[in-house]
Simulated scan of single mutants.
Amino acid sequence: MDESRTIIVDNGAYSIKTEIAEKDEPMHIPNCIMKAKAERKRLFIGNQIDECRDCSGLYYLLPCERGYITKWEVQKPIWDQVFNKTLFPVIDKNILMTQPLFNFKSIQDCIDEIFLRNMKFPQCIDVILQT
Rank of each mutant, 00 (worst) to 15 (best):
M1T: 13
M1G: 15
M1S: 15
D2E: 13
E3P: 08
S4G: 15
R5P: 02
I7Y: 04
V9G: 01
V9N: 05
V9E: 07
D10V: 01
G12T: 06
A13I: 02
A13F: 05
Y14L: 09
T18K: 03
T18I: 03
E19C: 12
E19T: 12
I20R: 15
A21R: 06
A21G: 01
A21V: 02
K23Q: 14
E25K: 12
E25M: 14
P26I: 01
H28C: 11
N31T: 05
I33W: 00
M34H: 01
M34V: 00
A36D: 06
E39G: 02
R40L: 08
K41M: 12
R42P: 00
L43E: 08
F44N: 03
F44Y: 15
F44G: 01
I45V: 06
G46Y: 01
Q48K: 01
Q48E: 05
C52I: 03
R53L: 09
R53N: 10
R53P: 07
C55E: 07
C55Q: 12
S56I: 03
S56L: 04
Y59A: 08
Y60Q: 10
L61T: 06
P63N: 03
E65S: 10
I69Q: 04
T70F: 05
T70Q: 08
E73T: 10
E73A: 11
Q75I: 02
K76C: 07
K76S: 06
F83V: 00
N84F: 01
N84K: 04
N84G: 08
K85G: 12
L87I: 10
L87W: 13
F88M: 01
V90M: 09
I91W: 12
D92R: 06
N94M: 09
N94G: 03
L96W: 10
L96F: 06
L96Y: 12
L96R: 13
M97D: 04
M97T: 09
T98V: 03
Q99M: 15
Q99R: 14
P100S: 04
L101Q: 14
L101V: 12
F102V: 11
N103F: 13
N103P: 02
N103E: 13
F104Q: 14
F104R: 13
K105I: 15
K105P: 11
S106R: 11
S106I: 11
I107S: 12
I107E: 14
I107K: 08
Q108I: 07
Q108F: 03
D109H: 10
I111E: 12
D112Y: 08
E113T: 14
E113H: 14
E113N: 15
L116W: 01
N118L: 12
N118F: 09
M119A: 05
M119Q: 02
K120M: 08
K120V: 08
F121V: 05
P122K: 01
P122M: 04
P122W: 01
Q123Y: 14
C124Y: 02
I125M: 06
I125W: 11
V127C: 09
V127T: 12
T131H: 14
